[in-house]
Amino acid sequence: MRRNKEQAAITWLRIGALAAAVCLAGAGLMRREHLEVLAKAVRICLECIGIG
């Protein structure tokens, strides 16, 4: 019985985390944050390569 309850709780935690992840990524896409990522990723990051 207790096992089933724990299993159910963790299943809900998983589903909740998955839903939160999708919502966050979706909100980010709506705010066009992926374009900021793109803008950063297509230029040489001087800090990353040790010139910084």
């Binding site: 985390a17 939160a20 966050l24 980010g28 705010r31 900021e36 990522v37 950063k40």
Partner: peptide, 24 residues
């Protein structure tokens, strides 16, 4: 790198955090 860049822009990193949570 993307997470740090988003945080440096003083914005909550919805997109990067969402993807990281999704992978996780």
């Amino acid at each position: 790198g993307s997470l740090q860049a988003s945080l440096a822009g003083r914005r909550f990193p919805f997109y990067v955090l969402g993807l990281l949570m999704l992978f996780g």
